[in-house]
Amino acid sequence: MNIIDLKSIKKDYRNKKRIITSALRGLDLRIEEGEFVAIMGRSGSGKSTLMNIIGLLDSDFEGEYSFKSKNVKNLSGNKLSELRGKEIGFVFQQFNLLKKTDVLHNVLLPTVYRSSRGDNKRAESLIEKVGLKDKIHNKSNELSVGQIQRVAIARALMMDPSVILADEPTGNLDTKTAVEVMDLMIGLNKEGKTLVIITHEEDIAAYANRIVQLKDGQIEKEGKKR
């Protein structure tokens, strides 16, 4: 079953001088539940734009988008927030932890906007899972970049989403830490999470079972691995 179904997606950006940049020009993409997809392409090829659309952060585009067979094109901002909170876990390239807030509360952040029980226990077990048990009460500014990405992964898992989206999650990491973080992500995919990773590194993409190559807002080539 397709969890993500994008048809003829077009996205134009207009800057203040009314100059139009076409970031996506008629793109079709289907992602099945449980898949691990790597999106590759040069800088400026439209990867992040695509990611924002997939992640329900951006609904201002042309074309059709069904998420879990539901048309999400015309949902209100608040409905999108709700869906995002429930279905999608984000891991960004940088920043994206609350400063002056400890690991536990960063992981708990998504739960602030919904009332679910047993939050702390789940957060603690996720922190343990990403190997940061001893850092649970450390402030985020006391962590290394690798540790920050682990916290972000734990946070992304907090609401038990069906899709994990990661925009260049290893972009700021050295090779060794990058491998550790990727191992973590691959583990999640093995547990059944749909995983979409943006990267421009071949080594990272090699882990995926499908690679989507973008060029100038279109899919240049697409290949299944293994």
Binding site: L57, N78, S81, R84, L109
Partner: peptide, 16 residues
């Protein structure tokens, strides 16, 4: 601003 973006990404609605 970035913090607000992050909060929205993890599910915060306008009124939150």
């Amino acid at each position: 601003t970035k913090e607000i973006g992050l909060r929205k990404a993890v599910g915060a609605k306008t009124y939150h």
